[in-house]
């Protein structure tokens, strides 16, 4: 189509060379994804069995090492609490930014620091919670809820950002119509704006959950880890990323196999959450 004027052979060669070079970029970028998934499947599938999912790690020096039940449940508990903290606060902040604050000085400052938070390495959230809750003050010691707090700090900017974008997508005509009918602002937000933006809010929340589920660094000095299943958020807890991180560094091949199995489980969980996020987004034609 761009050969209306005669393109010299040299220019055409350069063009196709560039096309292939850029395609090579795509292939190079996606090759690691394929390789990681391939190896995790290959090495992880062998570890899977019913007992893998139904027994806790034994921590024994010899013999049976047990499964990852406590790690799966721990991840779910820790991330669920983190979500329960981060999503309401994040959405509230987004409502403030989009509905009330807009271009005010406070809103711009909050936006700026939300941006700053997105760039903070996750291990620093763990350090902060360690300083404030693990060694400082009255609440000393490691506990699952402290890991959740660190993850919540990590999720907060993601939730706030994505929520603000999806609130901004709600047409102003809807707000104006509700206001013109005499609805007070809080009712407009609760009954009109938030329900309209719900799929977008859901997508943002799920993406944040997916991100938090795979994080190890914020849990290292807050949750610390454990072997047995526990449902007490005040106790040390196991989690999949922690389990993998610890098993990788052990010389026992059984533990390494368990790490691959746990990695497969974790990746499947995260991919499912990502898929759900994208389905929610599609319903809203957000992306």
């Amino acid at each position: 189509m761009n050969t209306l004027a005669v393109t010299s052979p040299r220019r055409r060669r350069v063009d196709s060379l560039a096309r292939w070079a850029l395609l090579a970029g795509v292939v190079l970028a996606l090759a690691p994804l394929a390789l990681v998934l391939l190896y995790v499947l290959k090495r992880g599938v062998g570890a899977l069995s019913l007992s893998f999912f139904t027994t806790d790690p034994t921590g024994a020096f010899f013999g049976d090492q047990g499964g990852i039940k406590s790690a799966i449940l721990g991840t779910i508990e820790i991330v669920a609490l983190a979500t329960a903290i981060a999503v309401p606060i994040g959405v509230t902040l987004a409502v403030y930014l989009n509905e009330i604050g807009r271009k005010s000085k406070l809103a711009m400052t909050v936006r700026y620091f939300v941006d700053v938070l997105t760039g903070v390495p996750s291990i620093l959230f763990g350090l902060f919670i360690y300083i404030v809750f693990v060694v400082g003050g009255m609440l000393t010691g490691f506990a699952a809820w402290k890991g959740s707090a660190a993850l919540a700090l990590l999720m907060l900017p993601i939730v706030t950002r994505t929520s603000e974008v999806s609130l901004a997508l709600v047409p102003d005509s809807l707000r104006e119509a509700a206001l013109a009918l005499g609805a007070p602002r809080w009712r407009v937000i609760l009954r009109v704006v938030l329900p309209t933006a719900l799929p977008g809010l859901l997508t943002g929340g799920l993406l944040a959950v997916a991100r938090a589920s795979g994080e190890t660094a914020p849990l290292l000095f807050t949750v610390l880890g454990a072997q047995a299943t526990t449902f007490s958020l005040g106790a040390q807890m196991n989690s999949l990323p922690l389990q993998i991180f610890n098993d990788v560094r052990e010389p026992n091949p059984q533990l390494v196999t368990r790490a691959w199995g746990a990695a497969l489980t974790l990746i499947v969980m995260i991919l499912l959450i990502n898929l759900a996020a994208r389905l929610a987004a599609r319903r809203n034609h957000l992306r």
Binding site: V36, L37, V40, A210, A217, A263, L266, I270
Partner: peptide, 24 residues
């Protein structure tokens, strides 16, 4: 589809990249 796959690279947890790095 390509954009989605590129985004999925970010979905692989850091610790899994580490595991893959150490043993492969």
């Amino acid at each position: 589809t390509l954009a989605l796959l590129l985004d999925l690279l970010a979905a692989v947890p850091s610790v899994v990249y580490g595991l893959w790095g150490v043993f492969i």
